[in-house]
Design a protein around this nucleic acid. Structure first.
Lengths: 205, 205
DNA sequence: CCGGAAACAGACTGACTGGTCTGTTTCTAC
DNA sequence: GTAGAAACAGACCAGTCAGTCTGTTTCCGG
């Protein structure tokens, strides 16, 4: 086997992720990626068939990392036995971890992908969908027992899946607030609000 | 004065809004806009100095319409005297209006603008910021008295401004869920969740 | 040490980009 | 009516785009 190209491939993916998060997919040219990755057209089209395929591979990798964060959150609270406490601990986990999540003027690749319609077909869409559905199902499974424990004290019990989606919505909304305000603070604030709302929902009365 | 060009101008703005919502700003070319608006390069650059300026003007118009929705929501509940009931009526107002808000596979122009960094400077950014801050301030002013009325029964009272931002985050997160799932349903679901969470927060105990 | 395949470099291409320019039409003020 | 300015049309331009192609380098099995 000839020389190893995985380092170059990774550099291209890293550069593309960084640029596309900031400028969008259509707003990022292959030449820009090459410059940032310190490589050439030849290397790029050796590793990827097209810009489209790069985007798909990148999104796949991004989703995997994202789901890793979900699993880490679930693992961090699996020892908590009380369902209500476990749900709240889960919310607190992400609240604590918000600062690391949003570094200076970064954004979420999902937002970049979802704002371009021609990406909303094929593998990119499927990857995003997998992320959303996995978060929904896993978080709903965590929330359902907590909601069941309070079902008699809540007049209008929210649907566990929709409430799970609301965490996803909070993340993405937080990202957008951070982008527009140019500060990582809103993410922390929004995750805190989510936790506070969940606490009041699940409070014994 | 020669013939009236406002109709053409409006057609260009409408076409641009429609295309940019779907494909992003960088993902929409001037030629595409011209085709959709059934006009020419000459007309376009007569009405706008550049694509950048069109984007800025369009965003200004979009923000004004958005703030109109906010004012309509505030007006719809201003007769409700009890602060808690007024806040809840406000949430219910948008829950009811969710379906009209999101037509089939539409998206929010804020998301398109915020996903491209070079737009995050100058008038486009200022317009988005004005929308966010106005929503925040107006909604916070609505929520603050309601929160004050419950301050003794809530252990960890959320900040009114951050809670107001959470409504904005819910809208944007809802838009993203609608885009990825290809359905207008998630918007309604997320606004319902927001209302349910607010109800439990403001519930007398 | 050498044959071959993968890894890379970069000149090149045609389509498309935002934007300019020249010319024509349409209206109003006089 | 006619002068003049705004409204519009579309050919045109230089630059950029994604993608191709040819050639060179690097490395490993034999």
């Amino acid at each position: 086997m000839p020389r190893d190209g995985t380092a170059t491939r990774t550099r291209i993916l890293d550069a593309a992720e960084c640029l596309m998060e900031r400028n969008g997919v259509a707003g990022t040219s292959v030449d820009q990626i090459l410059a940032a990755a310190h490589t050439s057209k030849g290397a790029f089209f050796h590793h990827f068939d097209s810009k489209r395929e790069l985007t798909a591979v990148l999104m796949e990798r991004y989703v995997e990392a994202d789901l890793g964060q979900l699993r880490a959150g679930l693992a961090a609270v699996e020892t908590v036995t009380d369902p209500v406490e476990r749900a709240l601990a889960f919310a607190r986990h992400f609240e604590r971890w918000a600062d690391q999540l949003v570094h200076k003027d970064s954004a979420c690749l999902y937002i970049a992908a979802l704002s371009e319609r021609d990406l909303l077909e094929g593998p990119v869409r499927e990857a995003v969908l997998r992320a959303i559905v996995t978060w929904r199902d896993e978080v709903a499974a965590l929330l359902a027992p907590a909601l069941a424990a309070r079902v008699e004290s809540i007049p209008d019990v929210p649907d566990a899946h929709e409430l799970a989606d609301h965490l996803f919505a909070t993340f993405e909304g937080g990202y957008l607030l951070c982008r527009s305000l140019g500060s990582p603070e809103p993410m922390r604030a929004q995750l805190r609000i989510f936790r506070q709302l969940l606490e009041s929902l699940l409070a014994a009365r």
